[in-house]
């Protein structure tokens, strides 16, 4: 496995020290890293799964809007940040591996490095108190 870009390494170090669930994906949407708080939401441990292809990790959640309608992948903030390279924010519901339905706020933003290198995107989750 090649070395990650320095901005991505620093982002991971920051995520490791924060209490908010954070996901880091590469330019094609593959999940490079998720921190411990994100493990609670996902139901997986990063040390066990390692990086995950976009197709694999995107199906773990079942995102729905407030009326219960499934959300299209293109409407998800992390997909917007990755494909369109601009920040996005959304309030929606997900069902994690534990089967519990959670209302969450998600902010995602693209990672643009020096010399305009597109390095992927970061999503930060906030669980909305019931």
């Amino acid at each position: 496995m090649p070395q990650q870009e320095i901005e991505v390494i620093l982002a991971r170090h920051l995520a490791e020290h924060l209490a908010m669930p954070i996901f880091i994906v590469n330019p094609t949407g593959d999940l490079l890293y998720y921190n411990e708080p994100a493990e609670v939401v996902l139901g997986f441990h990063f040390d066990e799964t390692g990086p995950m292809p976009a197709k694999e990790w995107a199906t773990v959640f079942q995102p729905v809007d407030p009326s219960g309608q499934p959300l299209l992948p293109d409407d998800l903030p992390l997909v917007i940040a990755t494909t369109h390279r601009y920040p996005a924010h959304k309030n929606f519901w997900i069902k994690g591996m534990d089967g519990a339905l959670r209302q969450i706020e998600v902010t995602a933003f693209p990672l643009i490095g020096q010399a305009d290198r597109f390095l992927g995107a970061i999503a930060i989750f906030w669980e909305v108190p019931a």
Partner: peptide
């Protein structure tokens, strides 16, 4: 790990 270490490459 090598992958996540600055300067490795």
């Amino acid at each position: 790990s090598k992958e996540w270490t600055s300067g490795y490459a």
